[in-house]
């Protein structure tokens, strides 16, 4: 039942508490940093642009005392999928691809355009992974939640109960490991009663039959635990209103300047990378 242990690994990134100056920034600043790297990475139309974003991300990682290897290691599980994407790019012929044919294997043409496209997809993914990995390595779970709260704060002032959304995000974060534990218990209980797991059946219908008895009690357990949490929150005086907060993130003039710089960088870099000519019309 090796697959059971996988549940415990269900995390989105991992916080690395190296107490660097990057870590000391306010959550809102970190979100702006995330945007400053993610937006140009997404807008990039060439592999070079994406690789430049990735390099920048790795530089910030050094400043944050997060080992670049730690961020790059996450690429490994994605390799098979990347290989598949590249293979598909090569196998299919794309309409309007007029670039030079580099290699001809029987009916398959590998063109320069396809190659560039594959490289761009791979580089873009790598840049995004580094960016997101950097964000989760430098922003703890509660900072991610506080950041959402701070981003939505203006809405709250307008009377939209946006602060509740931050609570939703916080609860969701907290429940992922809880659900992992519940799922493990349920799968073990079912397996102990002779259900089919891990016996490697390939028949999709049988797999559906095996997963339904897991999914249904998992959702029921999730609802039962919500009920318990509702009581715990109400008992501690929460009724959906505005709250004060223990954690504060004082922002000095230098950090304010950094924020302005990040916003500017996001806009300029996004425009620059998306204006760069896409090679070979893809």
């Amino acid at each position: 039942m090796k697959d059971l242990e996988f549940f415990r690994n269900a995390t989105l990134g991992q916080y690395v508490d190296s107490r660097s100056r990057v870590h000391a920034l306010a959550p809102l600043t970190k979100y702006l940093g995330l945007l400053a790297l993610a937006v140009p990475a997404l807008a990039s139309r060439t592999a070079y642009a994406a690789l430049a974003v990735m390099a920048l991300g790795l530089l910030v990682a050094l400043a944050a005392k997060v080992r670049p290897a730690f961020l790059l290691r996450g690429l490994k599980p994605a390799l098979p999928a990347l290989a598949l994407i590249v293979a598909l790019q090569a196998l299919l012929s794309w309409p309007g691809d007029a670039s030079a044919v580099l290699l001809r294997l029987g009916p398959i043409d590998v063109t320069l355009g396809e190659l560039a496209n594959s490289a761009r997809i791979a580089a873009r993914l790598a840049a995004l992974m580094v960016t997101l990995g950097l964000f989760t390595a430098t922003a703890s779970e509660s900072q991610i939640v506080h950041g959402v709260e701070d981003i939505l704060a203006p809405l709250s002032r307008l009377g939209i109960p946006a602060h509740r959304f931050a609570l939703v995000v916080g609860i969701a974060f907290r429940f992922i490991p809880i659900l992992a534990g519940e799922a493990e218990l349920i799968v073990k209980a079912q397996a102990s009663r002779g259900a089919d797991f891990g016996s490697g059946t390939r028949n999709p219908l049988r797999r559906v039959k095996a997963w339904l008895p897991v999914l249904v009690p998992l959702m029921l357990r999730a609802l039962e635990r919500s009920e318990a949490l509702v009581e715990a929150m109400e008992a501690r005086g929460y009724a959906g209103g505005l709250r004060s907060r223990l954690a504060t993130y004082p922002v000095g003039p230098r950090e304010k300047a950094l924020r302005a710089g990040l916003v500017l960088f996001t806009l300029v870099s996004a425009i620059l990378v998306s204006m760069a000519p896409a090679p070979f019309g893809t």
Binding site: Y238, R243, S244, R245, T248
Partner: peptide
């Protein structure tokens, strides 16, 4: 079932935060 926040002191602060007390 009754933990609300992910960090010990923040969980402990949940009640007083709901009362809107100063930091």
């Amino acid at each position: 079932d009754q933990l609300v926040a992910s960090v010990v002191e923040e969980d402990c602060a949940f009640g007083p935060e709901n009362l809107g007390l100063p930091r």
